[in-house]
């Protein structure tokens, strides 16, 4: 092919590097890596919406549904990671499809807040459901991988490998989707919906499709997270500040490139982990402070730094 997609090349290189790194990584690195991939996937979903000019303050809803769907299936005896993640992803996608009929009518802050309202309903339901452990949540048993049941450290290694493969597929998939006419219509809807309608296409339909995409990947991220930390609970999976963190990661990454969301998620995870470990009294202070710094001084996110570097080289 004459035309080489740099983003796909970049993602592929990162994929192969991480694939090998998996066998040498320390356990804590793998743990942070897994969480970054999971949160990065949700941020990827937000990126898809953000390019359309929409921000959701409630994507913990889909993250939570993905996580709880996967976790609940383990309660009834399903343990295969492939099945659990697929189920979590589809459950979120289905919910996004249904709610999409309502949400596609909203824009700006109303879209953001209506999403938050729905996510808080989920939060309320989980907190009030004793069977799901209420505020404590419940543990998720170690998954199997198509019959292979790893033990000890092999559990995380395999899970990381598994996550990496699927994150790669999902991310390249989203990237290619954004290059299609339907995906590219993000720009058109964000810039001028009236023109889109008068060119003969429904802006709401464009938004609906994007919303389902974002729900699917957020559900994927949630299911991965449930398996990665072996536990689900409403406060770290479905509460409003979780949604805020996803938006934070998206700001951090910028919406310039699909791969950037994972870098953003990793930076977020590092800030959070280290702030929590070394300054437990002020970790929120550090988190909020870095978010403010990015908003003020790096408005287009980390990706704009990379972009700037590339331009100065070229």
């Amino acid at each position: 092919m004459r035309y080489v997609d740099k983003t796909v090349v970049g993602l592929s290189i990162a994929f192969v590097v991480l694939l090998f790194a998996d066998f040498f990584m320390a356990e804590w690195m793998r743990f942070i890596g897994l969480q970054s991939l999971a949160r990065g996937a949700v941020a990827l979903g937000l990126l898809v919406l953000w390019r359309t000019g929409l921000v959701s303050f409630g994507h913990a809803l889909y993250f939570g549904i993905g996580a709880y769907a996967a976790a609940m299936l383990t309660l009834v005896g399903y343990h295969d990671a492939f099945f659990l993640v697929l189920a979590g992803t589809l459950a979120s996608g289905l919910l996004a499809f249904l709610l999409g009929f309502l949400l596609r009518r909203y824009r700006a802050i109303f879209f953001a807040l209506l999403n938050m309202a729905f996510s808080m309903i989920l939060y309320g339901v989980i907190v009030k459901t004793e069977e799901l452990g209420s505020t404590d949540g419940f543990s998720v048993l170690t998954p199997t991988f198509l019959g292979y049941a790893p033990q000890g450290e092999a559990v995380q290694t395999t899970l990381f490998l598994f996550t990496l493969v699927f994150t790669y597929i999902v991310t390249v998939g989203v990237h290619l989707y954004l290059k299609t006419t339907l995906g590219g219509m993000s720009m058109a809807v964000r810039e001028n919906e009236i023109r889109v309608e008068y060119l003969g296409y429904s802006a709401e339909k464009v938004i609906h499709v994007k919303y389902v995409f974002s729900g699917l990947v957020a559900g994927f991220g949630g299911a991965i997270m449930a398996l990665a930390i072996g536990q689900v609970d409403p406060d770290s999976m479905a509460n409003w500040n979780v949604s805020g963190e996803f938006v934070f990661i998206t700001i951090l990454s910028g919406i310039g490139n699909v791969g950037a969301t994972y870098i953003g998620a990793l930076v977020f995870e590092l800030i959070r982990t280290y702030a929590f470990e070394y300054a437990p009294q002020v970790w929120q202070f550090i988190l909020g402070g870095s978010l403010l710094a990015i908003i003020m001084f790096l408005p287009d996110g980390i990706w704009s730094l990379i972009d700037r570097l590339r331009k100065s080289e070229g």
Partner: peptide, 22 residues
């Protein structure tokens, strides 16, 4: 890009929406 989008929306329908924009 304005006109490219105008053409793309006008020309694409059904599965054509999933073909590359450019």
């Amino acid at each position: 890009d304005n006109l490219q989008m105008a053409y793309a929306i006008t020309e694409a329908s059904g599965m054509g929406l999933l073909s590359p924009l450019y």
